[in-house]
Amino acid sequence: MVYPAKLTAEAILRAALDLLEDGGDEALNMRALADSLKVRPSSLYRHYPDRAALVAALERHATLALHEDLREASRDRAPSEALSAAAHAYLEYTRAHPHLYGLLLAPRPPALAGPGPGKELWNYVLHLVGALTGNPDDTGAAVAYWAYLHGFALLERSGQFGLSGPRGGFERGLEALIHGLSTGKGGGR
């Protein structure tokens, strides 16, 4: 048995990640988490006051990991290549970590984005898009890019492409979007 004094927030988060990745949101509950760590459920509350706090930590982890994947994929590339590589990294992340990605899709009331991983991820996407369009604050173009990635991932995830799959639709749409953004035909600057 793990002694609660040796239990860390990081160990709990790793175990929660395993539960989530293996069984989805339904598998993530405090009792199952405590069982996986061989502690009493009350031991978890010293580090995470409730399930919502644990889910928030998992969301933070997912956002940081996605951001790192996009940065790594786009590093040292020309703007159009960087956007394409980041788009592929985004899609690969959604496929490799569907349950973590699902946490990022949870409905939330509209709010101002404060400092933190979500804002940093958005700023990086804005930077990538701005490098292509020439406008470092091209929010409209960044929203179009983000919505395309998100929409494709959701359609794929929900099985909406059917057995035949998207048949190159991701590449075709991405090429058209990047071309439109690079020539200014993707909307206003």
Results as ranks from 00 to 15, higher is better:
G184N: 03
L154E: 13
G186Y: 05
S74H: 05
A11Q: 13
L103F: 06
E156H: 10
A34F: 06
R60A: 11
H150P: 05
Y101H: 07
A141S: 14
K185L: 14
T8G: 00
L121F: 04
S36G: 12
G24N: 06
D69C: 09
A86T: 01
T183G: 12
G151L: 10
H99E: 15
P110L: 13
A5C: 00
A9Y: 00
L70H: 03
G114P: 10
L149P: 07
Y148G: 03
S36Y: 00
G187F: 08
A65D: 12
G173R: 03
A9G: 09
S164T: 07
R14F: 10
A96P: 04
A111W: 06
N135Q: 08
G102L: 09
G188D: 13
A141T: 01
R75K: 14
A62F: 08
S42T: 07
A141L: 05
I12C: 07
F170L: 05
T133A: 02
G151I: 10
H61A: 12
V2Q: 13
G180Q: 01
G162N: 04
L155A: 14
A15W: 04
L20D: 10
D138L: 03
A147Q: 14
R60N: 14
R157N: 08
E171C: 01
D25C: 00
G173M: 12
G102K: 00
G118I: 01
E171L: 08
L83F: 03
L103K: 02
A106G: 09
A153C: 07
R189T: 06
A89S: 06
R95C: 09
E26G: 06
V129K: 01
L66E: 04
R31N: 11
H179N: 12
Y93L: 05
G184K: 02
L181H: 04
E81I: 01
A82H: 01
H47C: 03
T139P: 00
H67Y: 09
Y101M: 07
D22R: 15
R167H: 10
R31S: 11
A113R: 13
G151E: 10
Y48M: 02
A5T: 08
L149F: 07
Y45D: 01
L7R: 01
L177F: 08
A87C: 07
H67F: 08
L126W: 01
Y145N: 03
E72M: 05
A65F: 07
A62K: 03
A52E: 15
G162V: 05
G116L: 06
A176F: 09
W146F: 15
F152R: 00
L174D: 03
L28Y: 03
Q160I: 00
L70A: 03
E171S: 13
A85F: 12
M30P: 00
A153Y: 02
L33V: 02
G173V: 04
A142F: 02
